[in-house]
């Protein structure tokens, strides 16, 4: 029997699957009325349990870091068009995350390390303008592997933005807005999505965080038109499978700029959110450990302008992610960058 001599070893996951498939193929050819299949299934289950036990993924608890909240203005930049979305990641491989600013015209990569904001590259949207667009441009920016998928309601096609030999480049995507792995469409001519009958302003998903014990978490936060943010947390088995809902929270009056992160790495993810009032008016960023009441924010910073984007990324390459807020006045194309910790 194929399974008899098989021992699970680290890095042999694919091999294990192949073995199981082989067994099932053989079983299909056997007679079904002599109990052979039942015995085979039991043997397979047993072997797999043994293999899983010997192959258990070790939980790695996060190592807390001391966060000092000390807001600091990094600089300002005139983007030339309204900012619609922000993302951050180290896509150029220099060990420091870049911030990707999506406007209604282009995607602009900037570096936030050092004493000033530095533009690294720009790529423009192109092709057909979206018809209908939304009255005020809206957009999304999502990191996907080594690229940023950027979309705005002003253009029919999204952009896949990446670095090629030190040059920021882009190619057109199929259109739509990547939201938590799905491609959504705006309600025609409007500034929100509709998914499964519910109207959404946006959503964030994280599957790379763990709880304090190191168990993988899956978090999904959906922002309704009312400004209510529904956050659902699933805790998963060590291998990231068998996820079960562990908690859900609702926060009211959340603005469209929000992010999920475990800034202090204590295993309790935080919601970092702007507030929901008229666009461009004075705003605030609050950092709230998920589960805490909104009034018990770990940190709060008010701004004279509206918070148009929040990212959490290691912009200075010190191994610890910072919270960066992008702030603007109503109708302005000039934005200020604030590092909050």
């Amino acid at each position: 029997m194929v399974l008899a001599g098989w021992r699970a070893r680290p890095g042999r996951g694919l091999g294990r699957c192949a073995c199981v498939l082989a067994v099932l193929c053989c079983a299909g050819a056997a007679r079904a009325d002599d109990g052979y299949l039942a015995r085979l299934a039991t043997a397979v289950r047993s072997q797999l349990d043994d293999a899983a036990a010997s192959h258990a993924v070790r939980l790695v608890p996060p190592v807390p870091v001391a966060v000092k909240w000390k807001p600091q203005k990094l600089g300002a930049l005139d983007l030339g068009a309204p900012l619609v979305a922000v993302a951050a990641a180290d896509l150029d491989g220099d060990g420091k995350a870049e911030v990707y600013l999506v406007t209604s015209l282009e995607v602009i990569a900037v570096a936030t390390a050092g004493r000033r904001i530095r533009t690294l590259g720009r790529v423009a949207f192109g092709g057909d303008p979206a018809v209908p667009a939304s009255r005020d441009p809206v957009g999304t920016a999502v990191v996907d592997g080594n690229a940023v998928i950027a979309a705005t309601s002003a253009w029919a096609h999204d952009l896949r933005v990446e670095w090629n030999r030190g040059v920021l480049s882009a190619r057109q995507g199929p259109g739509g807005f990547v939201v938590c792995g799905d491609r959504l469409a705006l309600v025609p001519g409007r500034n929100h999505f509709r998914e499964a009958g519910a109207a959404l302003l946006g959503a964030r998903c994280r599957s790379d965080l763990t709880d304090a014990a190191g168990a993988p978490l899956r978090i999904r936060a959906e922002l309704a038109l009312s400004g209510a943010l529904e956050v659902v947390i699933e805790r998963c088995a060590a291998a990231g499978t068998e996820c079960r809902q562990a908690a859900s929270y609702q926060y009211k009056d959340v603005g469209v700029a929000f992010e999920l992160a475990d800034v202090d790495r204590d295993g309790t993810p935080e919601l970092i959110a702007s507030s929901a009032s008229a666009p461009g008016e004075p705003d605030a960023v609050r950092v709230i450990p998920l589960g805490s009441p909104a009034g018990k924010a770990a940190f709060k910073k008010t701004f004279n302008g509206g918070v148009a984007g929040i990212v959490v990324a290691d912009g200075d390459g010190d191994g610890v992610a910072e919270v960066i807020a992008v702030v603007r006045l109503a109708g302005a194309t000039r934005v200020d960058f604030w590092r909050l910790d």
């Binding site: 009255r135 005020d136 809206v138 500034n191 929100h192 302003l201 400004g227 859900s248 929270y249 609702q250 926060y251 009211k252 009056d253 603005g255 469209v256 700029a257 702007s274 507030s275 929901a276 009032s277 008229a278 666009p279 461009g280 008016e281 004075p282 705003d283 605030a284 609050r286 589960g291 805490s292 009441p293 909104a294 009034g295 709060k300 008010t302 701004f303 302008g305 509206g306 918070v307 148009a308």
Partner: peptide, 17 residues
Amino acid sequence: VIAVAWLAAPARAETRP
């Protein structure tokens, strides 16, 4: 499910019309 709301001063700023 825990419903929580901003308890601080009236909320100000950036959402969509």
